[in-house]
Amino acid sequence: MSVDIIATPRSTAWLARANPLAKLGAGMALTVVLLVSVDWVSATVALVLECMLLPLAGLSARMLLLRGWPILVAAVVGGYGTALLAPKTGELLLEWGPVTFTSGSLEAGVAIALRGLAIALPGIIVLASTDPTDLADALAQKLRLPHRFVLGALAAMRLVGLLVAEWQTLGMARRARGVGGEPGLFRGVKAQLGQAMALLVQAVRRASRLAVTMEAKGFGAGPRTWARESSFARHDLWVVAGGLVIAAVSVSAAVLLGSWNPVFG
């Protein structure tokens, strides 16, 4: 029932041992390269290479489908929208009232759909193999982001896992007061909105209490030390290199085949 976002056990996959910053860097580099190139060749090559990385992140194809099906839908829809709205070049394929597809617009649509998938996948790979606590440690210690904000966000994340369970409890508690459970769509929506508001109130109240706890533990008063050290190791180099290689290979392939189409070109 509860979507306890960060209480899941630490992943044991190879990528999980890499420093989160290395993974983030590799993923972002790849994302930027894919963002500027809109063609089906680079997208396909990147997608295939990314799929080969899945085992390193401890993700099976089944888990990917379970977790990622909305992504598939979104990519297809995005491709469709582009095919519909792109400038109509090439030969006419289909005309039905205002809906027209040409070979040019269809190609653009396919490219956008594939690119969408190729952009989404690094995010899933990195995040499935990254523990939020490690990420926070890396952001604060290596990237030197202000620690109060980083740790505040980390603590908040834990709280939200609890709030998901609280939704159920609140529903029962309010029913016990006679709120909700009335027939009719309008009343149902009203009750749901009331409950959402109650959850928001609980979220803020718990946040204030959590802040008291953190302050009482001396948080935010001055310099602090770190119990967990965030460090870079040899295989972080491999991770970064891997991201760059995928980006380079996919763009080179597109350039070689003559289909590369940079956005700002």
Binding site: G152, A155, A156, R206, S208, A211
Partner: peptide
Amino acid sequence: VVDIVVVSVLGV
């Protein structure tokens, strides 16, 4: 601290 935590919780 309370500002940070509350806005973080809202964000999350």
